[in-house]
């Protein structure tokens, strides 16, 4: 008898290891590096985030004159959040930012 069979039978009768994702959500742990949030009031326009970004994903928004992050290039390393002197850029726990269209 194959050695793995007891394990297979046990798996057959216990509840699945996976979660039904869109209906059941697993909260990421504290300190997860998710989507970046920019607080436009706190920004002092020092542009340290632009210089420190290794992927060159941050640029200046022409209308608001504040940094804006291109999520297509962002590598979620969190350097900009670390370097920001007023903590205007923070990392949230949000990880659902897939979209069909470029906004």
């Amino acid at each position: 008898m194959p050695r793995i069979l007891p394990q297979v039978l046990r798996n057959l009768f216990r509840k699945p290891f996976t979660v039904k994702y869109p209906y059941v959500k697993v909260e990421p742990p504290e300190g997860y590096r998710g989507r970046l949030a920019i607080n436009k009031e706190r920004c002092i326009r020092c542009w340290l985030c632009i210089h420190t970004c290794p992927a060159r994903a941050i640029s200046v928004d022409k209308e608001t004159k504040r940094p804006s992050i291109w999520l297509g290039r962002c590598t979620f390393c969190g350097e900009c959040a670390e370097v920001c002197p007023t903590k205007a850029i923070t990392m949230t726990k949000e990880f659902e930012y897939t979209t069909l269209y470029e906004k």
Partner: peptide, 29 residues
Amino acid sequence: NTLFMLAWRDREYVMDLRELISGGRVHSA
């Protein structure tokens, strides 16, 4: 393929630990 599924299931434990201390499942940064 049974062993494949079982090994990758248990790999999730170590991915969770990495996520816990570094904030990312794969790229720790």
